[in-house]
Amino acid sequence: MMSDKKTLALNAAKARLLAVQMVYEAASGHPGGSLSCLDVLTALYYGEMNIDPADPKNPDRDRFVMSKGHCSPAVYPTLALRGFFPTEDLKMFRRIDGHMSGHVEMKHIPGVDMSTGSLGQGISTAVGMALAGKLAKKDYRVYSILGDGEIAEGQVWEAFLAANKYKLDNLCAIVDVNGLQIDGATKDVMPTEPLDDKFRAFGAHVITIDGHDFDAIFAAFAEARATKGQPTVILAKTVKGKGVSYMENNAGWHGKAPNDEQFAVAKAELEAVIAALEG
């Protein structure tokens, strides 16, 4: 399934609206980093990945691991819009009588390939899936989105040591470089630059792109697929809170729900984007 750019932008905008809405309705959740990675996620689910919502457990499917598992408001709407489950299910987000856990969860949500939430752990499971693909001689690919704050976890680097050792060219990790984390700017909380040199030193093929430019995103995915003998890391420069004016580039919206007024503003902004794309 390959969508045109306008359709991709429309799907991403719809997902952003659902993301903000589910956090608003739950009065809890993580909008900032969800909004920043939604263009990459939309590109994965509407173009790059070989998946079938009618057959979510197909052993030959491509896999996706949201290593920054708090970005469930990006994953769940994307899966819902892509047809894995009804969008009404999103109303169950973070509810004790619901099945949509605060962090991405695989047992109860169709289309989720791995439960995540504890930072640094998802990428190791993605390495395991890629290793399994190599062992089984299958040609599926494994994608994983990490946060740029998340990569302070030592386990991330353990995972890339192993990805390098086993030459996992079926693994493509995307770092959502929005520059912000809970306590502030990533450069202040724990400086991680130069990211490209670090990942290169760990044996990855590194591509740096604008994470909101679909052409750049798909070009990077194509380059990753063409890269043999090593994993690829895409450094996607993004805007935290992308698409909601007052959330953009504001660390305060990492894990906070909008109030009634704030939600009305976000809704109006995103609906305007949707209307323009539909018109």
């Binding site: 998802g122 395991g128 399994a132 386990q155």
Partner: peptide
């Protein structure tokens, strides 16, 4: 079918989880 993950136990458990998710 043997994988030496080096002195990195945390990653080893996660990689194993990923392989289990693929049926191993």
């Amino acid at each position: 079918r043997f994988f030496d993950m080096g002195i990195a136990e945390s990653n080893m458990q996660g990689v194993a989880a990923g392989m289990a998710a693929c049926g191993y």
